[in-house]
């Protein structure tokens, strides 16, 4: 593991054992998160992005289970720990959650305790992980609420979440995530449920905080516009697998995988010709029990070569420096 990497996910498999059969929500995912970097994970709904995020904190609930693979977290002092090996309810993983890695969720409406005061939740988290007393925790909480842009922070300590707007709640969630100076922030579609203006404000805030605290962010989204704005690196996922991985500039300049390419085409552009039709990706994400054989994207792919694509799933290969793709088009191509 390279020294500037703080999280390394190797061949992660998280499966759901449902009554109807096994759903391979995460099916052999590899990627890593370098220090002080924002990595965006992109893909349509149902691609396993959220489950990957939950796996990183070992939060996957039954019937889901991490079946194999490793998630290596590198502490500040260089100590490495494989999160997969920790007991999901044990002391060791709890010391990482909220302290080293924290998480914010898609629905700000339901991710705060509904009958708990905002201040109590902040103070509780700080007292749990930091070596400070209650007065200090209250003081820091107020400062933090102020920092994330909540007006009259001190008086908001006694508010309940239902008294706040969606944007404010998400700010509180961010404050909670920052409360113990964690080094990695997992943001699971944090702006999806918000209206457009609030979305932009929250994105600006996250971007600003990332630089200020020089933390790493794993940002899950299906919106490539967001990626362009805040991302450093991009991981494209499809049906539980990483299909392409590269820096933001590279991805936007040279999308290689047909899926990434299709995603790109579906973004409206400023120089958009009104006679041209905005393209959308053909078909939909297949049902988990109806995965096509071979390459999972083959049934929606414009370049599908039946004899190759339907027989085997190609491996994820580095076809340019730092640019990895999983597609037969670039097989043994080396440099493009």
């Amino acid at each position: 593991m390279e020294t500037n990497t703080i999280l390394d996910v190797r061949d992660l498999n998280t499966w759901f054992y449902t009554d109807e059969g096994i759903v391979k929500a995460v099916n052999g995912v590899d990627f890593s998160i370098p220090e002080s970097t924002t990595v965006c994970v992109v893909g349509e709904s149902g691609c396993g992005k959220s489950i990957t995020a939950q796996s990183i904190l070992n939060l996957v609930e039954p019937p889901g289970k991490i079946v194999s693979g490793s998630i290596t977290y590198r502490h500040n002092d260089g100590r490495e720990v494989d999160i997969v090996q920790l007991k999901p309810k044990g002391r060791d993983i709890r010391a990482i959650r909220g302290k080293e890695i924290s998480m914010i969720f898609q629905e700000p409406m339901s991710s705060l305790g509904p009958v708990n005061k905002i201040g109590d939740q902040l103070v509780q988290t700080m007292l749990l992980h930091l070596d400070i007393d209650k007065d200090e925790a209250v003081k820091q909480s107020i400062a933090l609420l102020d920092r994330v842009g909540i007006p009259k922070a001190a008086s908001r300590m006694d508010s309940y979440s239902f008294e706040l707007s969606g944007g404010m709640r998400q700010r509180v969630m961010i404050a909670l995530a920052l409360s113990c100076n964690s080094r990695l922030l997992i943001a699971d579609e944090p702006t999806t449920a918000l209206d457009v203006t609030t979305q932009a404000n929250i994105l600006d805030l996250l971007k600003e905080l990332q630089t200020d605290y020089s933390m790493s962010v794993m940002f899950i989204t299906h919106d490539l516009g967001v990626v362009a704005e805040i991302g450093h690196e991009v991981v494209v996922m499809y049906l539980g697998q990483v299909v392409e991985r590269a820096s933001v500039e590279e991805i936007f300049e040279r999308p290689l995988h047909p899926y990434t390419e299709a995603l790109m085409k579906s973004i409206p552009k400023l120089d958009f010709d009104s006679h041209e039709k905005l393209s959308s990706i053909r078909g939909m994400v297949p049902h988990p029990f109806a995965r096509p054989p071979g390459c999972p994207f083959s049934d929606r792919c414009d370049y599908c070569m039946p004899e190759k694509c339907l027989t085997a799933n190609p491996p994820l290969e580095e076809v340019r420096p730092g640019h990895w793709v999983r597609c037969v088009k670039y097989e043994s191509m080396g440099e493009v």
Partner: peptide, 14 residues
């Protein structure tokens, strides 16, 4: 509900 997972993600004991 999400707030349970969110609280768990902050490292609270069960």
């Amino acid at each position: 509900k999400t707030y349970v997972m969110a609280a768990r993600a902050r490292g609270l004991s069960e």
